[in-house]
Amino acid sequence: MFRRLSDRASGEVTFTFDGLPVRASAGDSVAAALLAAGVRACRTTPVSGAPRGPYCMMGVCFECLVRIDGMDNRQGCLVPVQEGMRVETQHGARALTTEPAQ
């Protein structure tokens, strides 16, 4: 649903989304990188489980929430993508396990 214009110079980074490698441009936010990779839905809601995807891209709507490097509910549009970053679909509410990773 989005494609990248070829007339901008930018370095390339690789991250994973739900385990699959995705290529992005340095400087992309996680949400922009996902849009460029054709990902429309990046989470399900805690209320009904409905799928949602980036909506405002400016940090106000909280629709682009994803799990980044094990941390739930990060705003994908405000986090710059980094080489090797692990991004995952945010399934519903933040997961709390009784044995927290220290």
Binding site: P46, N73, G92, A93, R94, A95, L96, T97, T98
Partner: peptide, 9 residues
Amino acid sequence: IVTEKATPF
């Protein structure tokens, strides 16, 4: 203080 929703713990 109120937090975001989380899975039951």
